[in-house]
Design a binder for these strands. Structure first.
Lengths: 354, 354
DNA sequence: GTGAAAGCGCTAACAG
DNA sequence: CTGTTAGCGCTTTCAC
């Protein structure tokens, strides 16, 4: 449960200056010095300056660990994401970090790599470090048990980007994946496509299920039938996209367009097409999901749907901040509406620059 | 110096189970329970199990904050980078985080956005949180003073990617920017270019100065003269690249090729060229630096130099780990050799796929 | 092998 | 406004 593991620790040899030493040096009590450190207004100017001088002179360093222990508070928050490598999450991280930083919180980072046991371990660690709150993107198929433990200790939890089964009790910020899936698929149908593959990602994730739902809705609304064999699960990576499109192309009645679970998959799909001698955006339409920065820079530029990761992060941080300040209202749900961004990868009639 | 700021804190209402309660429940002393928690081998099997059962039953959570306070150790490390938005740093973060995680450390994250005062504040915060070590990429023009404070408290510091003036006392991991700059420039010269702009970045950063040095070396070795007016400083962003190339194109004797300070700048340069009606890779050669993931996906694919950010992160974490375990040897310098990656953006004679 | 007592550096509650 | 006293939850001697 704890495993101190002596080898991972560092012992400080030179003792720090303590508040007591500062107090002695300044000729006041520890309590007074403490008040000065914390900027209390009930301190006379002279005393304050005396103490501040002593602090400077002795090279005093405030010990937040001790202070937090005594006061039973915390100004750290945990951020748990699945993968920093994915730009969607690194942009989300930017939003969270920037907002929390502004409010004076310190961020402890954890990545699960989609492993439930890793996620549990991270949540434990965060509990052990007495974080004041947690922002997390749960791993697919994650059980509420562990996360409920946090709730039990009145540590607010804000979920981002992915929902959790029966996680209605938690605040959630995400985008409308159903609407996003529908937007993308409607666009492709409007471009004349009838056989549209849905590639990459796994059905374990709520985002996948919702995007697929939107995909299906668009088909139904257009009065078209869905060919389940064009829905191919694969890791949400570039390689996953490459493999998925290759499989799709071997279909006896192959698709003419593909909806990648996210932009990374879509990149893979385009690379796979090129390897197969096809030109994405001319011979085959591709769309993605997320609108990460590089999607506009790909060759050809990728049609996709904006998922506003940074904004999600900012909102999540704001809500967490409110919760940590005592807001005990009902669980909030903030669902951003995605926006279709049409680029060349899905416009087969267009001429490319190259 | 501390500014507790009541509003950023959260008070826990429900008290945690303490080790004392576990000890009582199990009918042993606090000290014994503590030994069990830490997996001491000097405990009888029965006692251990009794205690472990009580822990489970009561829902005990180890309090690392209290433990660290008492034992004067720390298993947290601080990671300070300039910007998470830049893929170079997010890949570096991946390397650091993965390696530290494996060793059981917890990472506190900070970003400076290249602001020296922000960097100082972050270092203070990390000190206040009693981090056991710090990995940082110093802001340009950063003074050693603040960082020396850490050294003074025997908190090991490992510098990554950027050096610090008179920072020889610190471990440093980075790439050979001089060699990288030379590689890139030699390549362009070999392609027949004589007027090569060096765009983006600021001379305040050691990486900039070194890359420029390499650029100059290549010119000298080829017996060519350098035109200082083709060296244009600008923010190391896409927009910076756009602006810099526009300025360069207005030169009475404009360049035929550009070396972007990093890949992001190079992307901007290519976008700027397109806006000016030129086609990068056909009318104008562009190379970057870093070889971030998206450089292979750009249109056209970008010639660049691999800077191995993730590897740098991994090495930095390893060295820090050694330091935190008492390795007090001389400051280490690990300089990775960059590798030229030739792609279409610099091969004017090649035919593109589009 | 286990227990008793002391104390890490700080803040809280109350006096004055 | 400032000082006194107690104690956060844990680890560390040092007994036995």
């Amino acid at each position: 449960m704890s495993q101190a593991g002596d080898d991972i620790m560092t012992r400080k040899k030179r003792a720090r200056v303590t508040l007591e030493q500062v107090a002695n040096h300044a000729g006041v009590s520890r309590a007074t010095a403490s008040l000065v450190v914390r900027g209390s207004p009930h301190i006379s100017k002279e005393t304050r300056e005396k103490v501040l001088n002593s602090m400077k002179e002795l090279g005093y360093i405030y010990d937040r660990v001790a202070a937090n222990l005594r006061s039973q508070r915390s100004s750290t928050v945990g951020l748990i994401i699945t993968e920093i490598g994915n730009p969607f999450f690194s942009e989300l991280l930017v939003g969270v970090h920037e907002a929390l930083d502004k409010e004076g919180y310190t961020v402890i980072l954890g990545t699960t790599f989609d492993s439930p046991s890793k996620q549990d371990a991270l949540l434990s660690t965060m509990l052990e470090y007495r974080v004041g709150g947690v922002i997390m993107s749960p791993v697919p198929g994650c059980s509420v048990d562990m996360v409920e433990r946090l709730k039990q200790w009145e540590i607010p939890v804000v979920l981002v980007a992915r929902e959790m089964p029966s996680g209605e009790q938690f605040d959630y910020i995400g985008i409308d994946n159903v609407a996003g899936g529908r937007l993308v698929t409607e666009h492709l149908i409007q471009q004349g496509h009838r056989r549209i593959a849905f590639l990459g990602g796994f059905s374990g994730s709520s985002a996948w299920r919702d995007r697929k739902k939107g995909y299906c809705q668009a088909f139904h609304q257009a009065g078209l039938e869905i060919d389940e064999s064009l829905i191919i699960e694969a890791p949400a990576t570039r390689q996953g996209g490459i493999n998925a499109i290759k499989q799709a192309l071997q279909h006896p009645n192959p698709p003419t367009a593909a909806f990648g679970y996210n932009d990374i998959v879509a990149f893979g799909v385009m690379l796979g097409l090129k390897e197969a001698g096809m030109i994405p955006g001319r011979d085959f339409a591709v769309v993605g999901f997320d609108n990460i920065q590089e999607s506009s820079m790909f060759n050809p530029p990728l049609t996709t749907v904006s998922a506003f990761p940074q904004l999600i992060g900012t909102y999540a941080a704001d809500i967490l901040h409110q919760r940590m300040n005592g807001d005990a209202g009902e669980a909030k749900r903030l669902i951003l509406q995605p926006e279709l961004v049409v680029r060349e990868s899905s416009l087969l009639h267009s001429d490319h620059q190259f």
